[in-house]
Deep mutational scan, measured.
Amino acid sequence: MPSETPQAEVGPTGCPHRSGPHSAKGSLEKGSPEDKEAKEPLWIRPDAPSRCTWQLGRPASESPHHHTAPAKSPKILPDILKKIGDTPMVRINKIGKKFGLKCELLAKCEFFNAGGSVKDRISLRMIEDAERDGTLKPGDTIIEPTSGNTGIGLALAAAVRGYRCIIVMPEKMSSEKVDVLRALGAEIVRTPTNARFDSPESHVGVAWRLKNEIPNSHILDQYRNASNPLAHYDTTADEILQQCDGKLDMLVASVGTGGTITGIARKLKEKCPGCRIIGVDPEGSILAEPEELNQTEQTTYEVEGIGYDFIPTVLDRTVVDKWFKSNDEEAFTFARMLIAQEGLLCGGSAGSTVAVAVKAAQELQEGQRCVVILPDSVRNYMTKFLSDRWMLQKGFLKEEDLTEKKPWWWHLRVQELGLSAPLTVLPTITCGHTIEILREKGFDQAPVVDEAGVILGMVTLGNMLSSLLAGKVQPSDQVGKVIYKQFKQIRLTDTLGRLSHILEMDHFALVV
């Protein structure tokens, strides 16, 4: 994948999101292997301009796509893939009243899908469409860049269908997702969380590099694949309309690839034109409109599966009536509230959605109805927002919020430890010299600072030695090549209790 991002070429006709291997024109390309080798690009942008032909009021008969309808489940399912879809609609009884809503608040519980998330729908649909058009064949390999849930859905379907599955996901995604993927037989590649989507090191860039190296491999490409919004247009939206008897006044959905909100909203605009569509985008993402909503100094966020630093091709923002931004604290607070007060075992993005819903639905009156999409299960986040310690460490809970008995030293300040200034190293000294210094002084790690004293990161003896043994660096290389740029900081005025929580999850903390 090139470091400079080429513009994806656009073909003359058809839909841009065809499933299957992508040609340089962004659509299915038939021909000899030699032709494909000559024409197939190194990668295709996940934010390529959409060429979708959908228009409100256009006859369904003019759609270029294969459409399906929700099917009634048999008493005995032939395999677990038949437990994807037909998820329950559940009334939220307490939270709406707590925040003064007059309307009825309903939750579409997508964590009841077989793999635990709304992404099971698009995973199965992308595979079925690729099999139907002859792209996927027995023994082929599926590769997908994902925040985890699409990966789980694909790995689940691949396990049943017999495909090899490789999932490329950023490091910030939970260990629970990784464990589930491994249990399903998927191979996992992790990428830096802070890598831009168009960087060769991003999950998108690495996935395309693997595709170019592995024979008979395919990126189904949830960011561009029409099967993504079509899955929701054909099934999720129809289920909502049936469950609500066609009567709903507002739908609120958090947005990642945009397939969920695009597919549902398009069908609702056709069948229930008075329904307002509300999009939820986390602070630090750029999906919301108008652009002024996205202006923030924050560039990272903890909530998973929603928000991006690019506009995915499948996201149709014209069908969203209003956007709201959400933050991590309210997302996790509301997710825990949904679990504790409503018994809905949902993930953090569901918290984002409901946090926005109780604001947006203030305009609705008694007798009206708001539906929220709860995308995934708490299963993926047992060591994250479900953990009091994690919430404390991230600053989303305060010590006084917890009532468990603490040891005698818990409320003492870090400054009472009488710490001395640490050994520091410059980023320009060599790895070999740094190892000598650390061994001589008896230290395992040291902060790396520039000549102005600005902290650049941390270097550890173990990481340097393993990097040297693996051949990633040489003793003569500058130590700046092996620094940890993500590390926890703590102030002298913070409590030892807070430091204790940090050290339970990290090997060190830097006192500043």
Rank of each mutant, 00 (worst) to 15 (best):
P21L: 12
A71M: 10
R190A: 01
P59G: 06
S147R: 01
S175M: 01
M173T: 07
D133V: 11
A158L: 02
R190M: 04
I152F: 02
E9Y: 02
W54S: 06
R164S: 14
N216V: 02
G274R: 14
A157Y: 09
A24T: 15
G31D: 13
A253S: 07
V90S: 08
E62T: 03
I84K: 08
G151C: 02
D86C: 05
H232L: 05
T236S: 08
G205N: 08
E110Y: 01
A226C: 08
V160S: 13
E201S: 15
I142P: 01
E201R: 13
T87D: 05
A253Y: 05
S23M: 10
A265E: 07
S3K: 12
M169P: 02
K30V: 09
L105W: 00
K119D: 01
M126G: 04
S227Q: 09
P138G: 10
W43E: 06
K108C: 00
I219E: 03
K269H: 06
K72M: 04
K72F: 09
P78S: 15
G148S: 01
I127H: 01
T5Q: 08
E144F: 03
P12T: 09
E104Y: 07
R132A: 10
G185E: 09
T68R: 10
I261R: 01
N93S: 15
A157F: 01
E270Q: 13
F112Y: 03
P70E: 10
C165T: 04
I95C: 08
N212A: 02
K269W: 05
F99P: 02
V90P: 01
A237H: 06
I95Y: 02
L181W: 02
P170M: 04
E104K: 14
R132W: 05
D120Y: 05
G31N: 12
I219L: 10
N212C: 13
R209Y: 10
P49L: 07
K102D: 05
A69S: 05
K94W: 13
H65A: 00
C15F: 12
L56M: 12
M126R: 06
R51M: 07
R121G: 01
I122H: 00
V255Q: 07
R51Q: 10
A48G: 15
R276Y: 10
P70T: 10
L241G: 07
D238C: 08
I127C: 04
P2I: 12
A207F: 00
I214F: 07
R58K: 11
